[in-house]
């Protein structure tokens, strides 16, 4: 639809075609226009314009920009087959001699001491670095430089991040929260997604929770489970970055399977041996640069089962303590 039509067409017809145009007015606390958008703006009183804090021309420009941005969001089907990291320099200015290509469906772990530069590597990927960060790294998508406009439009970025913090400050139930998140991403049939996410989150969480539980009342494990399921099913981003998430109280194996399931590229900074061995490769960071790449060997993979048993054992012991039992025999 061209600009002219967009502004002149009856708003009800516009809404039939692009339901999200309503959100523009709702999110500014305005009534839904009767007639066209152009008429609506022409009829705004001085008072209302002053309250809005925007000039009429600006308002029109804003509306057009909004429709553009959201329109391209809902159309988006860009596919990412590979992510390439070309080395730059470490903290001492020495060359970082790496060139790694990561394919869709791969899990890459990032390991190294605190302060070594793990988060910086993730930030380089998020920023689609082009030699313009302190590390001088280059990130290429499908073999090319990334689209620079991604940097400043969080909703177009092909990257989702699961960060250390899983707290909530909003006063909403789990269901309401996932619903407004789904709506903010303009997904179709948000209610169905919400049910799916709550169900999957409950499969991951050690202790089950109800859809009506306020998000601020979820336990650490429950909110992590909710956020992982949310990222897996809401975010269309083909690249997922995970920065040292705490993983107590969730089924790590299932969580990773959920996240990678839809042919995503996962990069995860971690100290957890189980997560590390689930990765296909490990990038070892030292002094701000990747110093070594370790492929998870068959022998390591074979040890994964043993590690998981150990982990289960520790978990059982934790539960026994929780239930007031003694650990005289273990």
């Amino acid at each position: 639809m061209d600009r002219e039509t967009l502004l002149k067409i009856d708003f009800r017809l516009l809404c039939d075609e692009f339901p999200f145009t309503k959100d523009f007015f709702e999110s500014q606390g305005l009534p839904i226009p009767e007639g066209s958008v152009a008429e609506f703006v022409a009829n705004l009183s001085e008072e209302k314009l002053e309250d809005l804090g925007i000039e009429p021309d600006e308002f029109i420009e804003s509306f057009v920009a909004f429709v553009d941005a959201v329109g391209s969001l809902t159309e988006k089907t860009s596919k990412i087959d590979s992510l390439r990291i070309i080395g730059g320099q470490n903290k001492f200015g020495e060359a970082e001699d790496i060139d790694i290509e990561i394919k869709a469906g791969e899990i890459i772990c990032i390991v190294g001491p605190t302060g070594s530069g793990k988060s910086r590597l993730l930030a380089d990927i998020e920023w689609m670095a082009m030699g313009d960060t302190p590390t001088k790294r280059h990130i290429k998508i499908n073999g090319n430089d990334a689209d620079k406009s991604w940097r400043f439009s969080p909703e177009h970025k092909p990257v989702a991040q699961l960060s250390q913090n899983m707290n909530f400050v909003m006063d909403l139930s789990a269901k309401e929260f996932v619903l407004i998140h789904a709506e903010s991403r303009f997904v179709t049939k948000p209610e169905e997604k919400v049910d799916l996410i709550i169900e999957k989150a409950n499969e991951l969480a050690g202790e089950k929770f109800d859809a009506d539980t306020p998000v601020t009342a979820l336990s650490g494990g429950q909110s992590r489970a909710l956020m992982i399921a949310d990222t897996a099913f809401l975010s269309k981003s083909p690249i997922v970055l995970i920065d040292e998430i705490e993983n107590a109280g969730i089924d790590r194996k299932k969580a990773l399977e959920l996240l990678v399931g839809e042919e995503k590229i996962v990069l995860m900074s971690t100290h957890d041996p189980i997560l590390a061995l689930m990765g296909d490769k490990r990038l070892v960071i030292k002094n701000g640069g990747v110093s070594k790449i370790i492929e998870t060997s068959e022998a390591e993979q074979a040890n994964l089962t043993g590690l998981q048993e150990l982990d289960k054992k520790l978990n059982d012991l934790r539960n026994r303590i929780r239930n007031g039992e003694t650990l005289e025999t273990i």
């Binding site: 523009f24 804003s62 929260f177 956020m227």
Partner: peptide
């Protein structure tokens, strides 16, 4: 750093709705 990724996204989308032209 104080809130989850999902909450950040919801907040950012509210900002984008009132100022769609800005770099966020």
């Amino acid at each position: 750093d104080i809130v989850s990724q999902a909450e950040r996204e919801v907040f950012a989308s509210r900002v984008a709705a009132v100022n769609p032209k800005a770099s966020i």
